[in-house]
């Protein structure tokens, strides 16, 4: 309910949703670099899988030789060979 109100206000005012709704913003450069803004922390970190929390669940980054090249409170930069990015809800779907 609260989210829907926010959405409609953001739509009416044409505000960027990552600001208004605190949604994650992912920038993918080729297959080797990824920048995620508005993350909420690392859940799992391995060379082939990195899971980080976002406002509406989790993001799974699958790949090979993955490293976190930068970890700041707002930004998360991942480098390595990225194969897949999955969005997983709070309920695990």
């Amino acid at each position: 309910m609260k989210n829907n109100v926010r959405k409609s206000i953001a739509g009416a005012l044409q505000l960027p949703s990552e600001v208004a709704l605190d949604q994650v913003r992912i920038i993918l450069t080729g297959q080797n670099n990824m920048l995620a803004e508005n993350h909420k922390g690392i859940i799992e970190y391995g060379r082939s899988k990195i899971v980080f929390r976002i406002n509406s669940g989790f993001v799974e980054v699958l790949g090979e030789g993955l490293t976190i090249s930068s970890l700041q409170s707002e930004e998360l930069a991942i480098s390595g060979e990225i194969i897949a990015i999955c969005f997983v809800g709070e309920d695990g779907r």
Binding site: I43, Y45, T67, I68, S69, L71, Q72
Partner: peptide, 27 residues
């Protein structure tokens, strides 16, 4: 991972984070 998240919460920026094995991470 908990170490990394707590660092984030304290506003400590980390970079070049590489996992060596299950128990070791370098940053």
């Amino acid at each position: 991972e908990k170490f990394l998240n707590l660092s984030l919460m304290q506003g400590i920026g980390l970079s070049n984070i590489v996992r060596y094995d299950e128990r070791r991470i370098a940053a």
